[in-house]
Write a protein that binds this DNA or RNA. Structure first.
Lengths: 151, 151
DNA sequence: GCTTGACCTTCCCATCATTGGAAGGATTAC
DNA sequence: GTAATCCTTCCAATGATGGGAAGGTCAAGC
């Protein structure tokens, strides 16, 4: 079948199939005389595998590992589990971070009238001085020069 | 002060300060004769405001709105609250999505031995046929042609 | 046989926020 | 004066995806 049909059957867009091929996640396919890519049911199966992993938030790099583990009949489930749990850890850290953000904002919104008055705790909090301005990445490769460099 | 000092004082990297200037999030600064950007304490205040909003996950576009609302003494808190709550909604949808992913993976990992044996429910689930392959975005602008186009 | 329309190809560009680096000029410390 | 550190602009890359142009191919209908 052609790429469009493989896309429809796998749920991975034709664009992405070509991209996955270009980065080596999937091998180069056979082509017709005129250059059309040709896919087998087995290829579609692989694409569907990839799509599921992607839907679970795995990165392309992780997916590459999972695909090769999938192909390896002798694999140890230990490795798969390790990748999965590592990813769970990443997801959970991200969740916590978002929850922190949402919590802060909800709290601020709760104390905001939300009417026509200009008073707004949300803005006030954002503008407040009481913030640590920690990990910085400036152009400077070393700390600030001297002391009274400011003007 | 110079950009490096403004960066250190605000927690926004020099790179990002220039970027924010280039996209118009912050106005162009005064320059010294030799072209160095010069920042005031007030500018640093703005940058810190921006950094906080960014830390709360607001997009640059939203931050631009928040900054202009901040500058507007006559603003209605209603608008600020609307932006904040809209963002909370986005965050919560994202959280739910990630929780779904993490939940599925944890469930799969729980049923995986994680030892040297090749049996692995995680891989099996990813490879299973039982998946809907719905919303697709192919190159094709219309559905598949005819019926027996495949070869 | 020829047109038409849907499909395929490659190539480039854009996203979003951020970082990295190169090449070169300015300033400061010593 | 020199070296270290800062600044400048410009270009590129990230990750995964979509948009679109320019052009070739295929199948159907006339």
């Amino acid at each position: 079948m052609n790429i469009g049909q493989a896309a429809a059957a796998s749920g991975v867009s034709a664009k992405m199939i070509r991209y996955y091929e270009s980065i080596g996640l999937i091998p180069k396919t056979v082509r017709t005389e005129s250059g059309y890519r040709v896919y087998s049911d087995s290829d579609v199966h692989t694409l569907r595998f990839i799509r599921r992993a992607r839907d679970l938030g795995f990165s392309v790099e992780q997916i590459a590992d999972l695909v090769s583990l999938w192909r390896d009949r002798e694999r140890a489930s230990k490795e798969v589990k390790r990748i999965a749990l590592e990813h769970v850890g990443v997801l959970e850290r991200k969740i916590e971070e978002l929850q922190q953000m949402a919590g802060t904002l909800k709290h601020l919104a709760r104390t905001c009238h939300g009417d026509g008055r200009p008073d707004c705790p949300i803005i006030e909090e954002l503008a407040s001085e009481a913030a640590q301005a920690p990990p910085l990445k400036t152009d400077a490769k070393f700390g600030l020069l001297g002391k009274a460099t400011a003007r």
